[in-house]
């Protein structure tokens, strides 16, 4: 789930933006060393593929719909570094063209949807022994990596939202992880059926991606850039904000501090006042729009 702008507090999105830009720069630099001429078109076409696959929705429970995320699939096909950068490309394109996820929240979305699921998907696929085997073992390994990656993604998202004070953990955690547990099944089945299909037709693709080992430097980077922030997020989010931390947050974030002194919203007495203000605001914004229209020049026919 892509987080839009406005739902994360400044502390969270600024620090995650910084973290993600370091991760992206690191991955880009490492990939320049490791990439072969084959990698560039494969990354390009897979990013277009994931972008297109995310446009195709399938119905889930109760009128909502979900789509393939594809982080685990990319991790298996490309290896973790290239898969991470491919996912980042997709996320930038989605933020720019579909407004899926905000610009300031891009760092958070990169962490949730690219860094964490790609690495967890890759790790679980290797742990479950998907690289050496065919058939059932491969199917199970890829199903697991798809499911777990989605679930971790939802977990990080819920933790960030609750730490920002937008959606409390009591509601956000069950809603996000429960919903994504269902989505994860679809993701797992799709991941495994695509990979089983590819293992019949082009087994070299799977072996080249997930079969490649991570050098030691990358392991260190993974721990520093993904695992440690993840642990911090879980510890800070799940501790249910005991008093000292809460006081610290209240002093750091002005929105937190002023919570107590707000007047009741929409009490009957304030209703007329509220309506009048609303009309005024709508009028002001409408006239601003028409003011802007005066400046826009002649519209060319296309």
């Amino acid at each position: 789930m892509h987080i839009p702008d406005g739902f994360l507090s400044g502390r969270i999105w600024l620090s995650l933006d910084a973290l993600s830009s370091v991760t992206v720069l690191y991955a880009a630099r490492r990939l320049r060393v490791q990439a072969s001429g084959h990698t560039v078109p494969l990354m390009g076409v897979l990013s277009a593929f994931v972008f297109a696959a995310q446009l195709l929705n399938f119905p889930v429970l109760g009128g909502t719909s979900g789509h393939l995320v594809g982080s685990a699939l990319l991790a298996v096909l490309l290896g973790p570094l290239a898969a991470f950068l491919t996912m980042v490309t997709v996320l930038i394109a989605q933020a720019l063209f579909l407004q899926d996820g905000g610009l300031a929240a891009l760092g958070a979305n990169i962490f949730n949807i690219a860094a964490v699921p790609v690495l967890s998907g890759y790790g679980i696929f290797r742990l479950a022994g998907g690289t050496q085997s065919h058939g059932r073992r491969l199917a199970i390994a890829s199903f697991l990596s798809g499911w777990v990656s989605i679930e971790l993604c939802a977990l990080c998202c819920a933790l960030e939202l609750s730490l920002s004070g937008a959606i409390p953990l009591r509601v956000g955690l069950p809603a996000m992880t429960g919903y994504h547990a269902i989505l994860g099944v679809a993701e797992g089945i799709l991941t495994s059926s695509v990979l089983v299909f590819l293992s019949h037709t082009r087994p070299d693709l799977i072996r080249r991606g997930a079969g490649s080992r991570l050098p030691v430097a990358d392991w260190v980077a993974v721990v520093a850039l993904v695992a440690v922030p993840c642990a911090i997020l879980v510890l800070a989010g799940s501790s249910n904000l005991p008093d000292p931390l809460q006081r610290l947050l209240a002093s750091a974030d002005p929105v937190y501090g002023r919570q107590g002194e707000s007047e009741p919203f929409l009490s009957p007495l304030r209703y007329r006042e509220f309506l009048r203000a609303l009309t005024l605001i709508a009028g002001a914004i409408g006239s601003a729009y028409f003011l802007g229209r005066l400046m826009r020049g002649k519209r060319s026919k296309l």
Partner: peptide
């Protein structure tokens, strides 16, 4: 912005139409 990301975004834009037609 890192060059590989720019390259990749360019390819995404280029290939997207090909893929959509294929789908």
């Amino acid at each position: 912005c890192p060059r590989i990301l720019i390259l990749n975004l360019g390819f995404l834009y280029r290939y997207l139409f090909v893929l959509t037609e294929e789908v």
